[in-house]
Amino acid sequence: MNVNTETSGNSLVVALDGRVDSSNAAEFNATIENATADSDLGVVLDCENLQYISSAGLRVILTTAKSLQSSQRKFVICTLSNPIQDIFVISGFDQIINIQGSRAEALATMEA
């Protein structure tokens, strides 16, 4: 698992690579918590190179979404591969988290 953070326009873009499961979910949580705490920008989570995410990883995304929401910051996930998209659809999380097809589309919703 690799997490890279950069600022793009008025958004913090967090790119998540590799596999997230219960062995590294705590590390993922700490990384994303640190990255988002240092800023008050909205967050785009780019999953283009995410290969697998277990329910432990989904829990981190959910916690992140909730904490950003409570401070009125936007949160968008983008560029999900088909298997990852399926996980979001099956768990129903696509209904409570804004999911966009590409980073460009995600950034566009941040401008709105």
Binding site: L62, V89, I90, S91, G92, F93, Q95, I96
Partner: peptide, 11 residues
């Protein structure tokens, strides 16, 4: 077929 429900405990 799915029924579109969200995982429990979320909201």
């Amino acid at each position: 077929p799915l029924t579109g429900g969200v995982a429990l405990g979320v909201m």
